[in-house]
């Protein structure tokens, strides 16, 4: 199973939402990160086959998806970023509707709906109208409909938004398990969400690829660029200057056992810089977030 993206571009008016994206995606977890407006949703809609590219193509197992649209959509499960609903159907009726749209044989529909309700903790609200669900509940409904036909390719646009901590952990566990045999593509603009995911990461900015590697390799991009600096709390001007000049990734009070220069109180600043920002700054191992920020720079 192979999904290949070749020179994919999408033009809205005069603005390139996605430009010349090339990717090869195999079974496993593939996460797409980037700031708001980076083009993640446009990319996902094209990957889901519901938005035609302005240029380039997407190939599934060597065939252009535009030439096998319904066959391709039969193999995917898609959760859009936007989770608005317009129908007053109940959760169970909504799932049944999607089961029919996805051509699940009628005999198998009840058992599959039970599975979806159970997996996404929707059983208790199965008879509640969709319009009365909270954001987290709607998120779970949209995830359930995406997984209903056991797709080979899962395309989930911001799947963790609105979920509580337990819901996030369960989803991550489920996606890690599913990715063994399937292609699972997830997007987020919160880097912490993809930290527990194995697999490759794509960093998008202004519709273009900034980086595509594993989380550990992405973090490596910031090696020798992350510095820690301890400053006395009263060095207000120096702190303000540093915040203005550099990308500060952490700023916290100095713990008593943390001091390296005998200071009893002060602040610890982590920042990104190509060169030492201060004579007292020490290089420190980078985090994934810092690797992500460096790749965006």
């Amino acid at each position: 199973m192979l999904l290949e993206v070749e020179g994919l571009s999408k033009l809205y008016g005069r603005h390139w939402a996605i430009r010349d994206v090339d990717l090869t995606i195999r079974p496993g977890l593939f996460s797409v990160v980037g700031p708001n407006g980076a083009g993640k949703t446009t990319l996902f809609r094209m990957l889901a086959g519901i938005l035609a590219p302005s240029r380039g193509r997407i190939m599934f197992n060597g065939r252009d998806i535009a030439r096998q649209a319904t066959v391709y959509r039969d193999r995917i499960g898609y959760k859009p970023q936007n989770i608005d609903v317009y129908t007053n159907e109940t959760v169970a009726a909504g799932l049944e509707y999607f089961a029919r749209l996805k051509h699940i044989p009628p005999r198998l529909i009840p058992q599959r709906i039970d599975w979806a309700l159970d997996t996404f903790h929707l059983t208790e609200i199965a008879n509640r109208p969709l319009t009365q669900l909270s954001k987290g509940e709607r998120q779970r409904f949209f995830l359930a409909q995406a997984l209903l036909a056991d797709p080979d390719i899962l395309i989930l646009d911001e799947p963790t938004t609105g979920l509580d901590s337990i819901g996030r952990i369960e989803l991550i566990r489920l996606l890690n398990r599913w990715s063994i045999e399937r292609i699972v593509i997830v997007s987020t603009h919160i880097i912490a969400d993809v930290k527990p995911f194995d697999g490759r990461m794509l960093v998008l900015r202004d519709g273009q690829v900034c980086a595509c590697s594993t989380p550990s390799l992405l973090a490596q991009r910031a090696v020798d660029k992350v510095w820690e600096l301890q400053l006395p709390a009263d060095a207000a001007q120096a702190i303000a200057d540093i915040q203005k000049q550099y990308t500060v990734t952490a700023f916290q009070p100095l713990e008593p056992n943390q001091s390296t220069n005998g200071m009893s109180s002060g602040v610890v600043i982590r920042l990104i810089s190509d060169r030492p920002p201060h004579p007292a700054a020490k290089p420190v191992p980078p985090t994934l977030e810092e690797g992500y920020l460096v790749s965006l720079m």
């Binding site: 519901i50 066959v71 898609y78 959760k79 859009p80 608005d84 317009y86 999607f98 749209l101 409909q145």
Partner: peptide
Amino acid sequence: FRGTQSGYWEAERAAPIDPATL
């Protein structure tokens, strides 16, 4: 067709049925 700007419609369009047919 009041919901053609909603995520629900977007998910419906990603089903195997051709969206125009739908």
